[in-house]
Design a protein around this nucleic acid. Structure first.
Lengths: 226, 226
DNA sequence: ACGTTCTCGATAACGAATTCTCGATAAAAG
DNA sequence: CTTTTATCGAGAATTCGTTATCGAGAACGT
């Protein structure tokens, strides 16, 4: 029984990439050819039923007493999450974080291709960082429009985040991955995912002080969303 | 009616830093002296009742028709999350991401002080990055032990993450903030928070393809946890 | 001074996510 | 060939988080 895609629980969506990574690593060893939900659950410290429900959500069907063929399952989740379909992305801000992002080679194998980088600093414009030339910020909107980029990464200082987001939206971006420690506002329908280290640090700080006993189950989860 | 600290819902803990940031920014303008939960809700696009419940959880008491004194509320949440109590942290891995982390000046004002950086690359050892000298990795355990560091940041390549985590645990670390795209296993009681960009990218990829209509309410949330 | 309005705080209803339970099926063992 | 065992898949029950509702009290307008 297949669910409509928009009915995928947020929590499940957070866990699928975790399964994916583990399955990929396991497949890489080449020694295993089928996995059960119980295997996954054991390895990741999660409830077996929870894992089964998550896998079931993706629509793949397994065999009793065997589980799922490992290769099939990896490919299935990859396709389900869209990691095998390339999406063009642009980056704004080429400071230390922005540069680091340009260096993440495996973004490409996860479906994201950073096709351009932008900065406002004339010192940086024209430089090449990890193979990508830095362009002036005022070109961003047009570039997004003509290249039909779907995804915009913001790695600017907080103060510039909102105006950069506006430029992206103006060019017709569909989703923004925001690394700036700032709150950005976008029109309805645009997806924003914040990767805000200060938010993350704050909850870590709390847990640290209160020694929140994190069970193995929780111990693998959660995604900074928008 | 005060809740025990370990009963704070994870979801609330994810939202408190968001409130905190907005309150701080609002306080900085100097024009407002009291805020209501309704104000917060309006500004952040959340349900007013939800905000009220979250604020209530922290135990502060407000006044009908007025709300909360802005300064008090900021200080209260700051104290509640522990942002005002400094915690010593060590960093492992001084590649582009590690360097970027050393440059995040505001970590200190959020209660985290990176007191040492470690790397295995002899080229990097001895260098000073943003004022912190890079030490050889084999010193990590002892340093953590003697300095009683509570928090360890891992910004190494995936392959090194587990062994570095082991070193930290060995030195008596209490929490690990893991930026490496790898799964690390630690003994019960150690807090692990993963800041895994590939996990995050995967769910973003899915949402992008399925145009998941993100309501304003969802539009502000979620934290990559461990 | 008095009523109105706004907001806190608490309780109740609702919905989503997780966990529990069971039946069906395929492999393995006897 | 039959029994046992491990696993999927579906549905029920439970827990947890969010949303709705209501009463009480403080500022404001008249």
């Amino acid at each position: 029984m297949r669910l409509a895609h928009h009915d995928i629980p947020e929590a499940t969506l957070r866990r699928l990439p975790i399964y994916y990574r583990w399955l990929q690593e396991t497949a890489a060893t080449g020694t295993v050819h089928a996995v059960s939900c119980a295997d996954l659950a054991r390895a990741l410290g999660l409830d077996p039923t929870l894992v089964r429900k998550d896998i079931e959500t993706t629509g793949i069907v397994g065999k009793p007493r065997v589980g799922y063929p490992l290769g099939d399952l990896v490919a299935w989740i990859e396709n389900f999450l869209g990691l095998n379909r390339p999406k063009a992305a642009v980056l704004a801000g080429t400071g230390s974080l922005g540069s680091a992002l340009l260096g993440y080679g495996k973004f490409r194998s996860h479906g994201m291709q950073i096709v351009a980088a932008f900065d406002i600093d004339s010192e940086k414009i024209g430089q090449t960082i990890h193979g990508t030339e830095v362009q002036p910020l005022f070109c961003l909107s047009d570039f997004v429009r003509h290249r039909r980029a779907l995804l915009g990464l913001i790695a600017t200082p907080a103060g510039a985040a909102q105006s950069v987001a506006d430029l992206m939206v103006n060019g017709g971006i569909r989703a923004i991955w925001n690394f700036a420690p700032a709150h950005i506002r976008v029109p309805q329908g645009i997806i924003v995912q914040n990767e805000d280290l200060y938010y993350s640090l704050a909850s870590l700080s709390f847990k640290l002080e209160h020694r929140m006993s994190v069970t193995p189950a929780e111990s693998e989860l959660y995604v900074q969303n928008n």
